[in-house]
């Protein structure tokens, strides 16, 4: 076994990569205030995993999108759980983004030499918001349909390019198949690829400059592993617990709602929908 690992190491250098990942210096030792970035990476991984599995049962067209989401939610074993985790992790992620940003501002981590990484972070923030916006339409229910209609109409108000931009985004003059295929390609392809690319740079630059240590240092320096890893893991567990709590809330409090994420009535251009609101986290940014 040892020989096999040596063989592998000589060809891949994996030991060095593991060491590089684990033995990062943390000036002043592990602290709870350093967890926010890790929780966001965790949320993103959860979204990638659950998103891939949802993808396997989702059919983006105006004839089938709502039906397939209904099928996931009500017919498939644990489908409500999977969809609920994906939906509420998105919500929780928006909260964590704000906390991460506040942390950066409070500790002055945006200052030289870390400005460029700060911009990368802002880019990631926008990408995550775009992911939320595009994902909201995919179930093709009244809620997502009307909210996205409002959002894209606001976009059309933009001077000069507005109307053309709107047409490109919704794939024509009307909402339909082409809107869904475009939003789905953005949500599951383009935006995640951009997130991964930016995140790699974000983490690379973060490692290059090191953590922005909070003075005064309370302890001697430590490595990332194991103390900070343990802090981060516990924080991620707390995030997961919060998500599961939100998913199971109707069951815990007997509210009579569906478990997991809500699925409104199928999109219907002839039916009014009083609450054409975007998801709550857009309200705070707007």
């Amino acid at each position: 076994m040892d020989r096999l690992l040596n063989w592998l190491d000589r060809r891949t250098g994996y030991r060095r990569i593991i060491e590089y990942a684990l033995y990062e210096n943390i000036p002043g030792g592990a602290r709870w205030r350093y967890i926010w970035g890790s929780t966001l990476v965790f949320c993103l991984s959860v979204q990638f995993i659950t998103g891939l599995f949802l993808w396997m049962s989702y059919s983006p067209s105006s004839q089938t999108a709502w039906e397939s989401v209904y099928y996931i939610q009500n017919e498939m074993t644990c489908g409500w759980l999977l969809r609920g985790i994906h939906h509420f992790t998105a919500s929780v992620m928006n909260v964590l983004l704000v906390l991460h940003l506040m942390q950066v501002v409070i500790d002055g981590a945006y200052k030289a030499p870390r400005e460029i990484n700060f911009w990368f972070g802002l880019g990631l923030l926008l990408l995550v918001l775009a992911l939320s916006l595009t994902g909201y339409l995919l179930p093709w229910d009244q809620k997502g349909y009307w909210a996205t209609k409002v959002a894209t109409n606001i976009m059309a108000i933009a001077p000069v390019v507005g109307p053309a931009l709107q047409r490109l985004v919704i794939g024509g003059a009307d909402y339909g198949h082409h809107t869904l295929t475009r939003f789905f390609a953005l949500h599951a392809g383009v935006l995640p690829a951009c997130v991964v690319a930016l995140l790699v740079w974000h983490i690379f630059l973060f490692r290059r400059h090191g953590i922005t240590a909070k003075d005064p240092k309370r302890k001697p320096d430590e490595y990332f592993w194991p103390d900070q890893v343990l802090n981060d893991a516990v924080a991620c567990l707390a995030v997961l617990a919060a998500v599961l709590f939100l998913v199971l809330r109707p069951w815990l409090f007997h509210t009579g709602e569906d478990l997991g994420a809500e699925l409104a009535a199928p999109a219907d251009p002839s039916e009014t929908y009083s609450a054409a609101r975007p998801e709550w986290y857009f309200l705070c940014w707007a």
Partner: peptide, 23 residues
């Protein structure tokens, strides 16, 4: 600490993966 970190990390990662696998 190391044992806890590995254990907590594994549990956290497995929950979303397993729910996806069941579906």
């Amino acid at each position: 600490k190391k044992t806890c970190a590995v254990f907590v990390g594994a549990v956290t990662g497995l929950v979303p993966a397993i729910s996806g696998l069941i579906v």
